[in-house]
Amino acid sequence: MQVSAAIQSIIQQKLSEHFSAVRPVQFSGIGGESINETYRISFGAENVFCKLNSVSEFPQLFQKEKAGLELLAKQGILKTPAIIECFEQANSQVLVLEWIQPGEKTEGFWKKFGEQLATLHRISTDSFGLHEDNYMGSIPQSNRQHKTWVDFFAEERLKPMIGRCFHKKLLSKTHRQQFESVEKKLTEIFAEEKPSLLHGDLWNGNFMCNQNNEPVLIDPSVYFGHRSVDLAMTTLFGGFRQPFYEAYHHHFPLPKNHEQQWAVCNLYPLLIHLYLFGGGYLPQIENILRGFA
């Protein structure tokens, strides 16, 4: 997606208002995101981060991301990039955020991250879900509220993605039967806990370390769910160090069967990856399902 003259003009105006100065804007394309066009925008000595995408393909994608960032920021626990602007122009949607200059991920960083995530997970509410739906990456996800985690996870997470993958012939009838077996055991696997405020997509590409050695959350898929969702995602693609888990456990002790909970929670993101990227993710799913046969 090209940055149109109209969008450049709007961004120029918004940045002039935000920084109380009039300077030319310069766009530099950067990578790292699978569905968005991403840019570093230089505005004199200032830099900001910009995402572009299609309104028709992913309706309200950036509005939902903005709402998620605002909900996390409101808690005052973990940092998020400041939102500079979010708007639509013709069939384009644009999100402009504070530029985060990366710092070094020291042992102190990981301990702080674990402690802060544990504190975030103490934020609770009456139901599992959220007052509005959002996205997990490029996949719309329903946050219809339920009183129990087991009902929410089965109805709003597993079943919709199992259905999508089965329709796409990525899962067999045998796989569906295995998933049904897992669903019957959910009440045994997950002891009752209050809903936790989740980042929702906490893999190693969705946080940063700033120059003050502080964790910064990006690209959230927020809702109130079981805290094992976030912790499970940290293990799915690696990158998190042991001091993170030790600090988390110190401030919010993990249940004895947390590894079992994490395996089940990871079925959801693995199903999404299976749906988006194909059969390379099926062996991981099958390995988890075998563990609950």
Rank of each mutant, 00 (worst) to 15 (best):
Leu170Gly: 07
Leu171Met: 09
Ala263Arg: 10
Gly114His: 08
Val229Trp: 05
Cys86Gln: 11
Lys105Asn: 11
His250Met: 14
Pro195Arg: 05
Ile41Trp: 08
Ser172Gln: 04
Lys112Met: 13
Asn143Gly: 03
Ile189Leu: 05
His249Tyr: 13
Ile100Leu: 08
Lys14Pro: 03
Leu282Ile: 06
Gln211Met: 10
Ala293Asp: 13
Val25Gln: 06
Glu132Ser: 14
Gln116His: 11
Lys159Tyr: 10
Trp262Thr: 01
Lys159His: 11
Leu198Asn: 00
Ser4Trp: 10
Gln101Cys: 14
Leu254Asp: 01
His251Met: 00
Phe58Ile: 02
Ser142Gln: 15
Leu267Asp: 02
Ile189Gly: 03
Trp110Asp: 14
Gln8Pro: 07
Val216Pro: 05
Thr106Trp: 09
Glu85Arg: 12
His226Leu: 05
Leu170Ile: 03
Arg241Gln: 08
Gly280Ser: 15
Cys265Met: 15
Phe128Thr: 00
Ile10Met: 13
His226Asn: 13
Asp219Pro: 06
Gly225Leu: 04
Glu70Ala: 11
Gly76Pro: 01
Glu88Ala: 12
Val182Tyr: 01
Pro215Cys: 10
Tyr135Asn: 05
Ser221Asp: 06
Arg227Ala: 03
Glu286Ser: 09
Thr125Gln: 15
Glu65Tyr: 03
Glu188Leu: 09
Gly32Lys: 10
Thr187Cys: 11
Asp230His: 03
Asp151Thr: 09
Met1His: 09
Pro283Gln: 03
Glu192Cys: 09
Lys51Met: 09
His146Pro: 00
Ser28Leu: 10
Val22Arg: 07
Phe128Val: 00
Leu117Arg: 01
Phe207Asp: 07
Ser4Cys: 13
Pro255Ile: 01
Gly29Trp: 10
Met233Trp: 04
Leu267Cys: 11
Ile285His: 01
Ile123Ala: 12
Phe190Val: 02
Pro269Lys: 09
Gly68Ala: 05
Tyr275Gln: 09
Ser172Phe: 05
Tyr135Phe: 14
Met161Trp: 05
Tyr248Ile: 03
Gly29Phe: 08
Gln261Met: 11
Ala154Thr: 14
Glu88Lys: 13
Phe58His: 11
Arg176Trp: 07
Val264Gln: 00
Phe166Gly: 08
Leu267Met: 08
Arg40Glu: 12
Lys184Ile: 15
Lys173His: 13
Pro243Tyr: 11
Ala82Thr: 10
Asn206Trp: 03
Phe87Glu: 05
Phe58Gly: 01
Ala82Pro: 07
Pro195Val: 01
Ala232Trp: 01
Phe179Gln: 05
Cys209Gly: 10
Lys194Tyr: 10
Leu276Glu: 09
Leu15Cys: 08
Asp133Trp: 07
Trp262Tyr: 12
Val22Asn: 11
Lys51Val: 06
Ala154Asn: 12
Pro59Phe: 13
Leu186Cys: 02
Ile218Val: 15
Gly114Pro: 09
Lys256Gln: 14
Gln141Tyr: 04
Ala232Gly: 15
